[in-house]
Design a protein around this nucleic acid. Structure first.
Length: 818
RNA sequence: GCCGGGGUGGCGGAACUGGUAGACGCGCCGGACUCAAAAUCCGGUUCUGGCAACAGAGUGAGGGUUCGAUUCCCUCUCCCGGCACCA
């Protein structure tokens, strides 16, 4: 091979990029009558450089987009920036660079990296969430929702750092202490804005049933997160209280087993008891040092104290002690629970620890014995020790008890959700300003539409102590839009999940200055294929679904769901942990691109593991991908060096030529299925490697031999075009074509090339492999059995034994049972 | 703690609907080329025994269903993700 023919990825890739850019290959309008395909990836946070997780997810999406384009779809694949967030503030504190400047600089660098990787994006639609022309529509929608009653303000708990005098994110709390100050974190209640996602709980839940394009695991996680449960709310009279204590239970059948009740530390009854008892006051004070994160609450030691107050059991009339406990949450249900230690794990442990009585009121339906003194019995069963209700099953008891409480006006059937309303306020600077003005007379007043956007000042002095917005009189001091008196602007900003809850629609009309979206939204939405990390399975994907319904109900969209098909790719791990900037274990893809080129990096990412599986990063293997591309390059050039290739005559082939041709068409069929249906890019790559190995072993310089090789090489070029588009671009031309693969149709397998006269059948004796036989593809059952038993090795194991049964799986195996 | 996912050679992984365990790649071993090295090419590579044919074992652990289990069921264990203010 001549020096001239050496594979030089940088040159090859520049030429392909120049072609795509000059031809504006990936810029799309809205062509009626064409079969649109909207292929989207979760947009990146501009953290500085791309990391391997980005490369992985963007490559997956690009492979799908390019494949669909070759299948004739009219493909939109946009890109943008989830540009607000904490890291920009941290960088500002650390390096004294304003968050805006840092963010825009990162975006410019990362955009360059994305272009170098050859992704087929329509850059004319780029969206950046920290720009006022983007977030103004978020503010606009928020104001509309405010007027509709779908947003409200209430007190909510945050992590408070008493030394830095600032609110901490859960991530900034390390072992219960502030990450900078190392001071023990406190719970603090502050007023915050909430969006009523619970108003859509039922729809968010029910639509999951018909979302066939989503993985079951994600749907299950969302179902559990929403946590719909049917139960009854019932009330217990409390001594010395005018108001009865209300609790929710999904197990009214265990009502007679209630031996104590527990309330949250913030519950009024607990606060009242604390006023009279220092020990209770001290306990409640101690509960305030708990963290806000649920995982922390669930794993901590369960503690409680008796309040010295009794409630009356509504059925038996017995007195039941009231406790305050750190595991009861004020924000879930009514802030109080009835405890049935005989039939609930947590109640049982708490009762054991504090010497509270444990009684059995449910017995196993199969009549077996259980001892609730040993362990809680939590299954459904038959009621015992429950007076009139003895002998009823769960459903009968549920109905009977619900009816009784409803008749007495002391309770009602109700549905409870685990899902809580979405708190969108953040006490941070680098985010979308919440468009609210506080007036002493008028209260919280939304900023009028004509005054939007509320622009976030970008030129700020950033100290890290409190929000700089609070210090800016020109931002804070405004006139009340309602009455005109002096008022203050809200200085909290939105959770950055708000921006990522609707960006997918904005790509359709990114330049629309007069509305959130225009008619182009209806052309492109919903997204046909959405790809992103599994870590977003709940929050982002649920908030985006919620926003789609809000936008639909505002008349902005007609789509019920934003994402038709979802592919959740696994994380890229390094040293067993998620690769992330926060953990400092990133591998810079840039070095690999510089050394081997984008195609090698893309190929390695796609061949190392199936997309939905976690991928443990290792530097080995990238070499292998590079070697394969070199072999591929050389195979094409060596083949072309043999001169002109004549047309293939499929009926005039030798057996060896037919074998290679069959392999070619088997590969086309397999890769089409792997990419188009299974999303298994790793096995697609493996199949093309096998075909190349077969070509290299194929030693036939006959005219038809060369024609078969030409066909095989062309197949590999096309099948790999979505994965390694640059080298495919070059090799397609090297194979004698004037066109570009990006404009060519996807190859089709020729069924007649797949036909095979003889097939290999496996013979087992008692399920163990004992031989192989070559038989005609259409051999019948009896022939197969006969040939199987005739096999020499099989005979050794069957010999004198009696054949009890023979199982034949046509085209696969014969199993002789002796 | 709760919810979801995973555990297969020295390593990444394959086996799609219960039917040949280990495709493909990495690494390693041997050979060719070279003064030598790199690169490249050829051959071998689950473990144990055997010159070989072949036999036995084997998919985190234990049990079950089945002619047959990496695949289905039960119990356990370890790892990863999420848990509402990381994005």
């Amino acid at each position: 091979m001549s020096e001239q023919d050496r594979y030089r990825p940088e040159e090859v890739e520049r030429a392909a990029r120049d072609f795509w850019e000059a031809e504006r290959c990936f810029e799309v309008g809205e062509e009626e009558g064409r079969d649109k395909f909207y292929c989207l990836t979760m947009f990146p946070y501009p953290s500085g450089q791309l990391h391997m997780g980005h490369v992985r997810v963007f490559t997956i999406s690009d492979v799908i987009a390019r494949y669909q384009r070759m299948r004739g779809k009219y493909v939109l694949q946009p890109m943008g920036w989830d540009a607000f967030g904490m890291p920009a503030e941290n960088a500002a504190i650390k390096r004294g660079v304003p968050p805006a400047e840092w963010t825009y600089r990162n975006i410019d660098y990362m955009r360059g990296q994305l272009k170098r990787l050859g992704y087929g994006y329509d850059w004319s639609r780029e969206v950046t969430t920290c720009r006022p022309e983007y977030y103004r529509w978020e503010q606009w929608l928020f104001v509309r929702l405010f007027r509709k009653g779908l947003v409200y303000r209430k007190n909510s708990i945050v992590n408070w750092d008493p030394v830095d005098q600032t609110v901490l994110a859960n991530e900034q709390v390390i072992d219960g202490r502030g990450w900078r100050s190392d001071a023990p974190v406190e719970r603090r209640e502050i007023p915050q804005w909430f969006m009523k996602i619970t108003a859509y709980a039922d729809e968010l839940l029910e639509r999951l049933d018909s979302m066939d394009g989503w993985p079951d695991s994600v749907k299950t996680m969302q179902r559990n997160w929403i946590g719909r449960s049917e139960g009854i709310e019932l009330s217990f009279d409390v001594d010395g209280e005018a108001e009865p204590l209300s609790v929710f239970t999904t197990r009214p059948d265990t009502l007679m087993g209630v031996t104590y009740m527990a309330v949250a530390a913030e519950h009024p009854i607990a606060e009242k008891a604390a006023a009279k008892d220092e020990k209770i006051a001290a306990f409640i004070e101690q509960c305030k040092t708990m963290q806000a994160a649920e995982a922390a609450l669930e794993t901590m030691e369960k503690k409680g104290m008796p309040l010295g107050v009794s409630a009356t059991h509504p059925l038996s009339g017995e007195k039941i002690p009231l406790w305050v406990a750190n595991f009861v949450l004020m924000g879930y249900g009514t802030g109080a629970v009835m405890a049935v230690p005989g039939h609930d794990e947590r109640d049982w442990e708490f009762a054991k620890k504090h010497g509270l009585p444990i009684t059995q009121v449910i017995a196993p339906a199969d009549g077996s014995e259980v001892d609730v003194a040993e362990a809680a019995f939590t299954d459904y069963g038959v009621l015992v020790n429950s007076g009139d209700y003895d002998g009823l099953d769960y459903q009968q008891a549920f109905d009977a008890i619900a009816e009784r409480f409803e008749a007495e006006g002391r309770g009602r059937r109700t549905v409870n959700y685990r899902l809580r309303d979405w708190g969108v306020s953040r006490q941070r600077y680098w985010g979308t300003p919440i468009p609210i003005i506080y007036c002493d007379d008028c209260g919280a007043v939304p900023v009028p539409e004509s005054d939007l956007p509320v622009v976030l000042p970008e030129d700020v002095e950033f100290t890290g102590v409190g929000s700089p917005l609070k210090e800016m009189a020109e931002f804070v001091d405004v006139d009340c839009p309602a009455c005109g008196k002096p008022a203050q602007r809200e200085t909290d900003t939105f959770d950055t999940f708000v921006e990522s809850s609707w960006y997918f629609s904005r790509y359709a009309s990114p330049d629309c200055a007069t509305a959130m979206f225009d008619a182009r939204e209806a052309y492109w939405m919903p997204v046909d294929q959405y790809t992103g990390g599994i870590e977003h399975a709940i929050l982002h994907l649920l908030y985006a679904r919620f926003f789609q319904k809000l936008m639909r109900d505002e008349g902005l969209s007609s789509a019920d769901e934003p994402f038709t098909n979802l592919l959740t790719q696994g994380m890229v791990l390094k040293d067993g942990a998620k690769m992330s900037k926060a953990k400092g274990n990133t591998v810079d893809p840039q070095q690999l691109i510089d050394r081997y080129g984008a195609d090698t990096v893309r190929l390695f990412m796609m061949s190392a593991a199936p997309p939905e599986q976690a991928l443990e990063w290792s530097d080995d293997g990238v070499q292998g991908a590079y070697r394969f591309l070199k072999r591929f390059w050389h195979a094409v050039h060596q083949h072309r060096a043999g001169g002109a290739v004549e047309a293939l005559a499929p009926d005039a082939l030798t057996a060896g030529q037919k074998d290679l041709r069959r392999k070619t068409h088997q590969t086309i069929a397999k890769v089409s299925d792997d990419i188009g249906r299974r999303y298994k890019f790793n096995t697609a790559v493996a199949a093309t490697m096998e075909l190349l190995n077969a070509i290299n072993r194929f030693d036939d310089n006959d005219a038809q031999g060369r024609a078969v090789v030409q066909e095989a090489l062309e197949a590999i070029v096309m099948l790999l075009a979505p994965i390694v588009p640059h080298i495919s671009h070059a090799l397609w031309q090297a194979l004698g074509h004037a066109s570009a693969p990006v404009d060519e149709p996807w190859p089709q397998a020729d069924d007649s090339a797949l036909e095979q006269a003889l097939v290999e059948i496996v013979v087992q004796v008692n399920g163990k492999l004992r031989g192989r036989i070559a038989v005609a593809a259409d051999a019948d059952r009896d022939t197969l059995c006969e040939l199987a038993l005739a096999d020499e090795n099989v005979q050794r194991f069957v010999a004198d034994k009696t054949v009890r049964k023979t199982i034949v799986v046509p085209g696969r195996l014969v199993n002789v049972v002796v």
